[in-house]
Amino acid sequence: MTRLIGIAALLGAIFASGAHAQNTTLDEIARYRAQLQDGNPAELWEARGEDLWKQKRGPKQVSLEQCDLGKGRGVVKGAYAELPRYFSDADKVMDLESRLLHCMVTLQGFSRADATKRVFGSGSSRSDYEALAAWITSESRGVVMKVSLNHQKMQEAYELGEKAFYFRGGPHDFSCATCHSEDNKRIRLQDLPNLTQKKGAQLGYTTWPAYRVSQGELRTFQWRINDCFRQQRFPDLVFGSELSIALTAFLAYNANGAAFNAPAIKR
């Protein structure tokens, strides 16, 4: 916590110094980002997630160790680097979060409504998905992204995700591409990864989930794209919806070949 207060103070100092030239400011922000890497509160979510994975829970009192994330029941190591993928038992393409929802309903016996009550945490109202995703993704750290489009339904998901990426709509005419299809662009001082190029897609995708310092929460990829659509002035993207999975498939496949490197920490 002391470290976080220190970071907040540093951040305050950066933005208070309006007289600084912009390059100095950008250097300071780079330094701030480097300092953030030293100690990531995501570890707290990871520990809770591992417990949640192993606990017998739900009406059926079963642990998620019976859940198949694609590499066999209970296999967590490296699973996230191959998601989203096609699951024959559900005859659907699923990302991590929608697969967890599926397992909570089918294995643990939760109702869908109960299992989606708190998909994103806020303070003391914590999300099981954020904890589980923190732990499961940490078990893919360093693993090379290898998402496969070999199944027809993955191919279809990729293509729908690509269309959605370029789909302009809403009162502001924004699409994902408005901000994420050119190199070296910023919103205010925030650098934007070019997700249409391999390097940018790898950098963007492999650093989620992330602990957001500004929110004090660990956020998953489902949260990331939900919040992008909010800023695009679109309606509320439904957690685990077909489009959310398709867009994730598009971005995850584009990140293939890079070592997964999350949970990360971001401003």
């Binding site: 789909f167 809403g170 659509f229 679109f234 309606p235 993207l237 439904v238 077909e242 489009l243 398709a246």
Partner: peptide, 17 residues
């Protein structure tokens, strides 16, 4: 599929798609 994947919230209705 897109419309089924979004829900109306506040002032953001599905016709934005």
């Amino acid at each position: 599929i897109m419309k089924a994947s979004f829900q109306e919230k506040g002032q953001a209705k599905l016709d934005r798609l």
